[in-house]
């Protein structure tokens, strides 16, 4: 499993730390709002997996694309999605990114190259191939990254999309967040290989497994995969071993149902924020500076979302046809 080297600038590391903290605090806020009955629909938080979002998106340009999953707040934030409009979407406000019709599972901010969270597991991968195809036809060196989980790597959509990208050399990075569980089903039961990245061999594409709790390692692997795509050499498969500290959704506990307390505590000790703080030898003052900036942003998002109106009835019948 690839670990980070120490070649990254402190500035870059601080940026990625900030991104991870923004994700952490946004999702804690979303969870609080959910528990307070202020969220419409469900939320799936990615707390514990923030290094994946932050590391990948730090390797992207603004005009690159991402597509994500039902657990997509982190990727959205890392790609530049606006927090107030995102929280408003979760809280069923018409100012939300999807005008309150998509909810947490369909967050998108196309103006930022975010082509959507897609809640049908696996469905985003063929669409990413198509966005890659559009970029190739345009003749520009843009790249599409698609996030998915260990469960989705068992879906036909993954294999069909990998093959299409391989035969057409499409500029797509397949980024698998292997958080070990598809809801309750362990990857070691459902998946034929220990390292999902080896599946790239079937498509003659590069594959690499990295420590998904180490944002620098994720960034370095992503930078390489993105460069490969940008040079017109086709897809790569990067697998990050990671863990969600929460249940799949609020319907299951952090541990005790299908994960043991010991396993959970083992992963908690590798919290990507703490790993990054240690790498940067952060002082209390450093941490406070990050925290203060993020808290201000979160407060602004909450104020915006709380004060936004609910949708008019007419919104139900809008946006169906162009």
């Amino acid at each position: 499993m690839a670990k980070s080297t120490s070649g990254l600038s402190r500035k870059r590391m601080h940026e990625m730390y900030r991104t991870m903290l923004r994700i952490r605090r946004f999702e804690e806020t979303a969870d609080d709002m959910y528990m307070a009955g202020k969220v419409v629909g469900g939320v799936h938080v990615s707390i514990g997996q923030e290094a994946c979002s932050a590391g990948v998106c730090a390797a992207l340009r603004e005009d690159d694309a991402v597509l994500t999953t039902h657990r997509g707040h982190g990727h959205s934030i890392a790609k530049g999605t606006r927090l107030p409009e995102m929280l408003a979407e979760l809280m069923g406000k018409v100012t939300g990114l999807c005008r309150s019709k998509g909810g947490s599972m369909h967050i998108a901010d196309v103006s930022k190259g975010h082509y959507g969270a897609h809640s049908i597991v696996g469905a985003n991968m063929p669409m990413a191939a198509g966005i890659g195809l559009a970029y190739q036809l345009e003749g520009k060196d843009r790249v599409a990254v698609v996030f998915f989980g260990d469960g989705a790597s068992n879906n036909g959509a993954f294999h069909e999309a990998m093959n299409l990208c391989a035969i057409w050399k499409l500029p797509v990075v397949f980024f698998c967040e292997n958080n070990q569980y598809a809801v309750s089903v362990p990857a070691e039961y459902s998946t034929s290989v220990d390292d999902i990245s080896v599946r790239s061999k079937g498509y003659d594409a590069p594959g690499l497994t990295v420590d998904g709790m180490d944002v620098a390692a994720v960034y370095e692997a992503s930078r390489e995969a993105v460069a490969h795509a940008r040079r017109g050499l086709g897809p790569s498969l990067v697998e990050a071993k990671t863990y969600r500290f929460f249940g799949h959704s609020r319907g299951d506990p952090h541990y005790g149902m299908y994960r043991t307390k010991e396993e959970w505590e083992g992963w908690k000790a590798k919290d990507p924020l703490i790993v990054c703080e240690k790498m940067l030898k952060m002082t209390a003052k450093d941490k406070k500076a990050h925290a203060d900036a993020v808290e201000a942003e979160i407060r602004e998002a909450i104020e915006f979302a709380e004060s936004s109106p609910e949708p008019e009835e007419s919104v139900a019948l809008e946006d169906i046809f162009a």
Partner: peptide, 17 residues
């Protein structure tokens, strides 16, 4: 290829783009 799911999804992506 004979990948109806794959190429139809790809067409949706290309259309969005």
């Amino acid at each position: 290829p004979i990948s109806e799911l794959g190429f139809t999804g790809a067409a949706v992506g290309a259309a969005m783009a």
